[in-house]
Design a protein around this nucleic acid. Sequence first.
DNA 1: AGAATAAACTTGTATATACAATCTCATTTT
DNA 2: AAAATGAGATTGTATATACAAGTTTATTCT
Lengths: 236, 236
Amino acid sequence: MSQLKPAKYTIIKQYICEKIESGQWLEHSKVPSENELTEQFSVSRMTARRALQELTEQGLLVRSQGSGTFVATFKSQSSLLEIRNISDEIQDRGHQHHAEQLALQTVEVNEEMAILLALKPGDKAHFSSVLHFENNAAIQLEQRFVNPKLVPDYLTQDYTQITPHEYLSSEAPLTEATHEVEAILAEQDICHALAITATTPCLQVKRRTWSKQGVVSVAILTSPGNKYRLGSHLIF
Amino acid sequence: MSQLKPAKYTIIKQYICEKIESGQWLEHSKVPSENELTEQFSVSRMTARRALQELTEQGLLVRSQGSGTFVATFKSQSSLLEIRNISDEIQDRGHQHHAEQLALQTVEVNEEMAILLALKPGDKAHFSSVLHFENNAAIQLEQRFVNPKLVPDYLTQDYTQITPHEYLSSEAPLTEATHEVEAILAEQDICHALAITATTPCLQVKRRTWSKQGVVSVAILTSPGNKYRLGSHLIF
DNA sequence: AGAATAAACTTGTATATACAATCTCATTTT
DNA sequence: AAAATGAGATTGTATATACAAGTTTATTCT
């Protein structure tokens, strides 16, 4: 049935995908708003919204409340990561063996801590797209790193070479720890980060490699008592 | 704001997650329907639906039209894959090197074809969770492999050891090719498969390792003209 | 008893509406 | 000129409703 009479929101999704794939809608360009799609396809706003919403969840689009919906970069759409070698600082911490251990162990956080792990071109890692949390502490991070304030940055600015990873330990509350991470990102002219769609214990991570060099960074803001299974996501 | 006054659907999601994590709602058990949650939380059906929907997309729940919503298995919730060696038949096709090539190339399908790739314990592979399609031909498969008919099977039966992968080539229409895949699954007592949430060119794959041995199988039903980038998803 | 039918339940799609929250941009005030 | 205000646009959340599609269960008929 769905083949003979596809759902309306599917038609809208296909329309948008064709526009993007054909190159008519370039990266970072604004796509029609919910109201515009509503008129264009003669559907309700909720139907148009569903199309945009699902494409956003799939990484093709980026939405920002108040601003609009934009075409994501191809990097963020692709799941093929071309990272080959571990960053220097990780290697310094005990060569590849230590890095493997770091990646495969379950990280149990007992104090409020901000972890920023950035991989630069040449790093060898593979990211799975699911993060497991024992609560939803990462929501804070998502709101910070996919902050609307950042949208005009990664939509307009050029991307810079990322620096080696950083480990931050802070006693400050979540917000301050987040600011600390953001400060380092700003200090290093890093205007991209992972968007962590976080709502429940089982979280999905949307990769956002807003970088021309294929740089990927993972930023996780933790809180006491949380457990993170980084091991299932970072495979060196 | 969302911290001080969380969204209603978030509250419902947290409620369900707590039930599952605390063990009160076991695997395969039925969760409250949309109408029941509507009454219980005094919200509209769409709000309750959104909670169930998002948890389903995150892999915690499985929904079946007409039947209900069920708790997914822990295996399907976990992203930690314990697969170590490539299956025999893949190795026969040219050892690891060929397997790498098979995994990393872009598969362009020119005829209707059903591909069933099953990996058994000891196989070494890592699955990314995003599949790229050039249209939404895989929707058919999703509906077949997450067919309600299969729900009572993987909810009740024991899981069997999976066999090596199979490649099927068929001129039959989509439905017949699907039946062909299903027949082989049944013949080998395979009652688990990947659930492919397929709607648009950029698809997300929910892993459903309904197997005690950590077996993972990937089943893709293709149609002429489609292109699949398996390479970004299977890394040996 | 078995088969066909019908009713009830559950999820899927779609519309219409309302208000909140956020951002943009023009206007006004200082 | 700079800051504050306000209107408009856009996305986020929520409700109410309707019908479609698939499943389950009970009922009725043979």
